[in-house]
């Protein structure tokens, strides 16, 4: 019992981090169709913001979350306005452009903050561990899980139950027709990009107490995020949750019974096989084409 619960919790914990990292990417890709290779760097910048706010301004991690979301959303907003909006019709060029933005962000951080590994202090209230059905789990990991689910719920609510979400769905189905009905699609795209970047920043800030903070940290996260989005289906928010859940539990299970090296390989293999037979991912929104 104890082992089963702790296994489940481990999987959920891995899943929650995957989902946090993938959510921003899924929103941006799902709505605008931009393959954002700088996504990992948004995560990295979020982590560095957390580090900066904590070491320079003495702000605790939880108090920094809102400022970090705003900073990264602003950053996303500017990137969209300066670069991305000129490239919507040229998907291949966005890959190159966002990759370039990522490289520049990495080097800018290296030059200003230095290349040393950094860490962010965990909130003291969450530094303990909690007992659930005999299994112990770090309170901080449970906090990440809770926050990831709330962020998803918030995003879901915006997407499904607000007029902004309605416009978003309309544009996702057909941008030209939506525009002809008077929806300002350029503004919706920009807000979406900013929101996605903000979520990525939050993801970076939240993982920073558990992992090391370095200019290159984004590279691994962008791979994980793409794995989740590809498996879940690009235009489905629900798919993102489901696929991070599946990948998290699968990785946790395989890693427990063999090791992390093998788990990583097997998970990638499973995804390759799956997209061979289901290229649209597990869940795909019904979109008229």
């Amino acid at each position: 019992m104890e082992l089963v619960v702790s296994q489940l919790l481990t999987g959920l914990s891995i899943a929650s981090i995957l989902m946090l990292v993938a959510l921003g990417l899924a929103i941006i890709y799902g709505v605008t169709g931009v393959i954002n290779l700088a996504h990992g760097e948004f995560v990295m910048l979020g982590a560095y913001c957390a580090w900066f706010l904590q070491t320079q301004l003495g702000l605790g991690l939880i108090a920094s979350l809102v400022p970090i979301f705003i900073i990264l959303a602003l950053f996303g907003w500017i990137i969209e306005a300066l670069v991305i909006r000129h490239l919507y019709a040229r998907p291949l060029d966005t890959i190159l452009a966002t990759w370039g933005i990522g490289v520049m962000a990495q080097q800018a951080v290296r030059l200003t903050a230095g290349g040393e590994l950094r860490y962010v202090e965990m909130p003291a209230a969450l530094a303990s561990s909690v007992n659930i059905f005999g299994a112990t789990e770090s309170a901080y990991r449970l906090f990440i899980l809770g926050l990831a689910l709330s962020l998803f719920a918030l995003t879901w609510y915006i997407y499904r139950h607000t007029s902004f979400g309605l416009k978003l769905r309309a544009i996702t189905q057909n941008r030209d027709i939506a525009s002809s009905f008077g929806i300002n699609s350029a503004r919706v795209y920009r807000s979406t990009f900013a929101y996605g970047a903000g979520i990525a920043g939050l993801a970076g800030a939240l993982v920073s107490p558990l992992k090391s903070v370095s200019p290159e940290m984004g590279t691994t996260y962008v791979v994980d995020a793409f794995m989740v989005v590809v498996l879940g289906g690009a235009q489905s928010l629900f798919g993102t949750v489901a696929s991070s859940g599946i990948l998290g539990e699968l990785t946790g299970f395989l890693a427990f019974h063999s090791n992390d090296t093998i788990a990583k390989a097997l998970v990638l293999l499973a995804i390759v096989i799956l997209i061979r037979f289901r290229p649209q991912g597990l869940f795909s929104a019904r979109v008229r084409s």
Partner: peptide, 11 residues
């Protein structure tokens, strides 16, 4: 470069 040790910690 691995950074997710929750399975290891479980073990």
């Amino acid at each position: 470069g691995h950074s997710e040790f929750s399975s290891v910690i479980n073990k």
